[in-house]
Amino acid sequence: MTAIPVEDAVEVADDHGSDHHDDGHHTSLGLSNMKLAMWLFLGSECLLFGALISTYLLSKARFLTEVLAGNPEVLGTLPANLIEEFQAEGSVEPLFDIPFTSASSFILLMSSVTMVFAHQAISKNDQRNTRLWLATTAALGSVFIAGQVYEFTTFYNEGLRFDGNLLGSALYTLTGFHGVHVTVGIIMLLSLLVLAFRGKLNQDRAETLELVGLYWHFVDVVWVLIFTIVYLIP
């Protein structure tokens, strides 16, 4: 066994592998621990959203079948005009306001771009732009959430209840769960912003921002799926 000089071997366990200027830190794969962990976490989120999207697709299909067959239990949970529209179209499309949702999808997509700009800015240690882009991203995310709140109230006013039928339960759960993820993302962005204004978000912490970015893009990607699967293919 070759003994390595103590200085090199003292690789403290709390190394989280953010990018350091010294060469002291190295990991077996040459990747940072935090980043690897983030990707692993996002991987497990795939399964979570996969399960929820499948649940939505199944629940919606079962709901439509019952509506078209005229099951009184299901029809009793919806206002008559919605039932007529569903039965006429043979789909749940009449519920959705595609232009509105398209706009909010666009806003979320936009926030991904501002997020990468924030990361670029911090890589160059450009404090002003880092703050600017972080704030923009958080703001765009908040607009998306506001849009979702508005959309939920519209659904509610149209007569779709969370505890009424399968469609209500599945739709509110899937989009709401995504909304919770966006909200958590916004909180993280705001926390970073606070740090930035206190002058504590410098180049050394580019990776922290990058990790928040990864999470943010993931949430965006999930919305790409939800938008197509739920709204465009009703």
Partner: peptide, 28 residues
């Protein structure tokens, strides 16, 4: 996460009146 998703559905069903496993609403 797959179990967590199932448990989330069950939680919503039991605590908040969702219908994921409510057969009278056509659930499977």
């Amino acid at each position: 996460p797959v179990l967590t998703a199932a448990q989330l559905l069950l939680l919503l069903d039991r605590q908040f009146g969702a219908n994921f496993f409510n057969v009278t609403q056509g659930a499977d």
